[in-house]
Amino acid sequence: MQALTDNALMLKVKSGDLNTLGLLYERHKKRLFGFFYNMNSNPSLSEDLVQNVFVRILKYKHTYTGEGSFTAWMFRMARNVNYDHFKKNKNNRETNDLSSISFKLQDSKDTNSEQDRKDVISTVQRAMNLLPPEKREVLVLSKYKEMKFSEIGEILGCSEGAAKVKAHRALKDLRTVFMQLEKR
């Protein structure tokens, strides 16, 4: 149960009670980490990017108006952080396919069905990495059960309907890439 809404906490941060940011961090750190991890498959980089989001929240706290959802505002920052990072490291994309390889090796004793499931997950992850970032992003956001499409629209800067259409088409593309990888 969360007594104080994210909105109220962020307004406290804005008014100078910076320690309150700790509460927002505890509430959202896993979700943000999951967002970055699903975008880049690199846990250490994802942790750094989560940190960058909160640095940015502090830097731009004066722009927070309290209108709309805090989550949408925070994820807009997360998108920008992700975008800036990959713009800076254009020639050095940090994806970590090794993690899925070692993941396969260490589980050689698993039963066949469990191994099959893990193979599928690994292929889906690879398919995700091959999608353009904007498609990957909309899929990662729709994965969160607690996030409504109205919020996803707010984050992506489009209408709720457009966000749903984007998600649908990205899902279709994911399927196409996945099938191509399965055939190899």
Binding site: K30, N38, Q125
Partner: peptide, 26 residues
């Protein structure tokens, strides 16, 4: 089936280092 696969994607737990870095920054 794609939607179910997407939801099955696993995310590891962030390390304690992330908390330490955050609270230092704060």
């Amino acid at each position: 089936s794609s939607w179910e696969q997407l939801n099955a994607l696993e995310v590891p737990e962030p390390s304690e280092k992330m908390d330490t870095q955050f609270f230092e920054m704060l």
